[in-house]
Simulated scan of single mutants.
Amino acid sequence: MSAKITIERATVGDSDEVAVMVGELLSEIMNTIGVQAFSFDLEETTNRLKDFLNLEKYFVFVARADGGNLVGFVALYESYALYAEGSFGTMPELYVRPEFRSNHVGLRLVSQAKSFGTSRGWKRLEVTTPPIPQFDKTLAFYEREGFAITGGRKLKIAL
């Protein structure tokens, strides 16, 4: 697919389509690993995204094809930690629709995330990959983009 792709900061008006892509991302992960790891409600996700964008708690950049359709996105939020020497960014979601994955859309979204982080004075950008070995290609992509494995695993507990 050789459509012209532009990268731009998402607006609240993009929330519906970004939320649909979040659902696509979560479904892809769960189908690949064979575990119902996430619950997803489109309306709740859309409303949550609108709130996050309005409060500037979440920063989203979208990849838009010629016709205006969104083909991918990257989400970022700001964090603070002593180990990170101050403020840093976390990239909780990066998704490119499958038919656009060979067009360097992910590369362009990550590049935009790095530029945005630099403009905010972040010391680093962190990302967690989906489970390995099923997502070895995802890990390899991040490593090609300069990310380094820092050890450990992501853990969670429901509150």
Rank of each mutant, 00 (worst) to 15 (best):
K4V: 13
I5C: 05
T6C: 12
E8C: 05
E8H: 04
R9G: 07
E17S: 10
E24N: 09
L25V: 01
S27V: 07
T32H: 01
T32N: 00
I33E: 05
I33T: 08
F38V: 07
F40Q: 01
R48K: 12
L49T: 03
K50F: 06
K50V: 08
L53A: 11
K57S: 15
K57Y: 14
K57A: 15
F59G: 08
V60Q: 01
V60F: 03
A63I: 04
A65I: 06
D66H: 09
G67A: 08
G68M: 08
L70Q: 02
L76M: 06
Y77H: 14
Y77N: 13
E78F: 06
Y80M: 08
S87L: 14
E93R: 05
E93D: 13
S102I: 07
N103A: 02
V105G: 00
L107C: 08
L107D: 12
S111A: 05
S115R: 12
F116Q: 00
G117A: 06
T118E: 15
T118R: 15
G121T: 04
W122G: 03
L125R: 12
L125C: 11
V127L: 13
I132T: 13
Q134R: 08
A140Q: 13
Y142Q: 02
E143H: 03
R144N: 15
A148M: 09
L155Y: 12
I157V: 14
A158C: 13
L159V: 09
